[in-house]
Amino acid sequence: MKIFSYASWGVPRTGFDPSHTFVRSHFVSPLVLACIRTLLCIYCFTAITTCYTWLAHRTATISLKDVNIGSYTIQQSDAAIGQSFSFFTYLTFWSLGFYFLVSSIHTFMYAFRQRTWLHSSWPKPLQMAHSLYYSSITCFPFLVTIVFWGTMNSGWPTGRFEQWINISVHALNSLFAIVEIVLPATQPPPWTHLSVVLLVLSAYLGLAYITRETQGFYVYEWMNPAHGNWSIVLHIIGYAGGMVALFVLARCAIVARHWIAKKTEGARRENAEMEEKGIKLDDRSDTWSSEMVISKPSQARRSSNHFV
């Protein structure tokens, strides 16, 4: 008995994604899907580049809080550019950008050549990694959005830059994830993917404390033991539980999308069949009418000849 099998992780023996669901859609053409993914990729990287350029010359003021921590203000300038790679928010946004980059390339290839590297030449480990990548970017953005607006936001910032970057990385990120749940024809992720999603979340916790040791600051204030060890434990349990719930909800949404697409396709086929039957009936009616028209002159000729 094998402890590990690719089939349990979304790569069956018959071949990875035989129906090309990662590059197709129930609702739009592959070319349109590729263009949408490209636009989202461009926006992600443009937002990050603009953010870093702005911080290199100016200072952003952000007010935060937590469930058991009062409001506090942090100043972000050029040093925040390097520090951003320790924030789960920005790591998730970077991940969205690279996912849309890779997926748009594959989708363009499928749109023009009906094949992709992902399906034809990539080894199984990379195919499995792409499937896991999809599972992560349809879950993590929602955690970022809910945690920020639900527990961390301490008022609407006054600066235009702060307003825009907050909307981009804490709101549009979830909109982009919704696009990836709704548009592609992807199958629901295997339940095994949930363990990897939780593992990534746990690994990030370790990264955050490494940042504390190497750079001297807590990425998120709730990680500071000064606020109590129980606070840290409860935050970890809460985020893990939220991650499980978000994975289940994302999976259910994909199942619902398949059901809606199936019903929609069934309705289209029924309409097409009804239209086809209507055309056949019209054709039969025309044929019958033409025979009647043709038969009359012949009868008339026969009658006239008999008269003569």
Rank of each mutant, 00 (worst) to 15 (best):
D66S: 12
W54Q: 10
S29R: 13
V147Y: 03
V147A: 06
I36N: 00
L118M: 11
F100E: 04
S131K: 01
T38L: 14
R115E: 08
L118K: 03
L143W: 02
L64P: 01
D78S: 15
F93V: 07
R37H: 06
G97A: 13
P141H: 06
R58Q: 12
T92I: 03
S29F: 07
Q76P: 03
Q76F: 00
M109S: 15
M152K: 04
I137E: 07
P123L: 05
S29W: 09
L33V: 08
P18K: 01
L143S: 05
L39W: 02
A47T: 15
Y52G: 09
L91V: 10
H26K: 05
T21R: 04
T89Q: 08
L118E: 03
Q83W: 04
H20Q: 11
H106C: 11
Q114K: 15
L101G: 12
F45A: 13
S25V: 02
A129W: 08
L132M: 10
W117G: 09
A56Q: 13
M128S: 01
Y99C: 05
I69F: 08
T107D: 14
T145M: 13
S136V: 05
F22H: 08
A56I: 03
K124M: 03
K124T: 04
S86V: 01
T116N: 06
A80F: 07
